[in-house]
Amino acid sequence: MNDAATPTDPKQSELLRTARAVVACLRFESRRSLSIPRLATWCLLALFPVGIVTVFRYFGEMPRPEVWALMLFLLIPESMCLLGLLLWMAPHLQSELDGKTWPYLAVRPHGRLIVFLGKYLNAVVWTALAGLASLSICIYIAAPLMVDAGVMFQTLAALVVLSSMGYGALYALFGVLIPKRATLIAVGYTLTGELLIGTLPAVVSEITFQFHFRCLLRNWVDFTIGADETRLLFSEAPSWQHLAIIAGMIVGFLALGIWLIQVREYSIQDEA
């Protein structure tokens, strides 16, 4: 290979160059995302939990502190983050793979890996930022009615980040697995897997992200819930165990997605 074809310092490792390219992809995607429709969607997404919390705070009955925690959990990490990722993860990956930009990107060294991770990080960052903005405003509004608003914020903020990373990894996998139906599959899974199976008082719910997020919420926020309810909907496992399972699922989904995007053929242009 001639010098001209060697990008940057030859002493730099392949890993470092790839990591830098992932950051470049994230920056490029974020820059492209700064459009009025995208920003308007982001604002709407961040404000819809705020609207509901405002209605409860000023016009409804005063919920118990633990109900505030559950409500914010269901509104932000379990609804807003899911919606954000449904909008920004699978469809964006799908449009790249289906679209005609893919060959430009895939013929770059490690291009497939870089684009997969760059788009994943972009979706996670945009969703997590919307979640954290929404959470901050909601906690501000509801803080007078909470026992410990600081702990609540920290707990839910961590769950927002975990939710964005977890569901993002899963939807990214859907995006490379079935590109043409990725959004449909993601919506289908969310409704049946996370919203239906995830809330079943049965062992099967433990395969969902929602179960582990819920258990972390109970472990980190001091809940006063009846013993029967606890037995059915939560596990007694320590937080580190749930965190390890979530991390394993994220890494597993991402690894599977990376493997698929490396080996599958996405060149679907018309034959010239």
Binding site: P7, A24, F28, V115
Partner: peptide
């Protein structure tokens, strides 16, 4: 962007 993907700073 494509050059950055290629590994250039």
């Amino acid at each position: 962007y494509l050059l950055e993907l290629h590994g250039f700073s």
